[in-house]
Nucleic acid binder design. Structure first.
Lengths: 109, 109
DNA sequence: TCTTTATTCAACCAATGGGTTGACAACGAT
DNA sequence: ATCGTTGTCAACCCATTGGTTGAATAAAGA
């Protein structure tokens, strides 16, 4: 799982991490603020954030003792691009198939 | 990881499975055909296909002994919807921030 | 300087994931 | 009726993951 796309997909496979992304879309937040809503330890959330960071989905700043976390939304485009490529490809194939079936129906009648 | 979105993300976190999806976007194929290009066992590919199936990304038919695998591309919309939601949200927030900064610069001069 | 606050590091544990091999089931062909 | 093909099931192995607790670091405040 060395490539970025894999890391991004796998980062977002976890509901807690998707939740963190959702929260960060609203605005930057410190690790403590992000951890507060969950009943897991702060360390666990810190680990989740590290996974998101390794995927390039977030970056961390440094203000006093706190590390404000920032969402890097452009990375999501990477996934969208991958998904859209194959979704569209499959869609077009179905469209062609429909056209062929339509044509067959016409010739038959 | 009980919800579908998690299953879909995690299914696509594996390069081999993304590869299978790419292949299936071209057209349906049997398990054997799909396994041929890889140097892992057929069983391993069968497992991968099961993961994709559980995520709702593919379905399997039955023609004689073969099980033609079919890509269900609509499920990808689920991911796209999730991604786009937060990407756009973050984008709008940055746009607002830029506007504020712009305004501050004007007032300052 | 000493203490408190915010975060990470380290070691550990149970569960999951991707791979293997070997046996089995279903079906077509001979 | 038997054989070969296609695919899955089962048991196993090792690496990774998400969680824990406890100690370490870094900076602010007293």
């Amino acid at each position: 799982m060395t490539d970025q796309l894999s890391r991004v997909f796998s980062a977002l496979a976890d509901p807690t991490r998707r939740d963190l992304v959702a929260r960060l879309a609203v605005g930057d937040a410190t690790v403590g603020e992000l951890a507060a809503p969950y009943d897991v330890s702060v360390q666990a959330v810190s680990k989740h954030l590290r996974v998101l960071e390794d995927a390039g989905l977030v970056t961390k700043g440094r203000v006093a003792q706190t590390r404000p976390v920032h969402l890097e939304a452009e990375v999501l485009d990477l996934m969208t691009a991958w998904i859209e490529r194959y979704r569209r490809q499959a869609e077009e194939r179905y469209a062609r198939l429909d056209a062929v079936l339509e044509e067959m129906k016409e010739n038959e009648s």
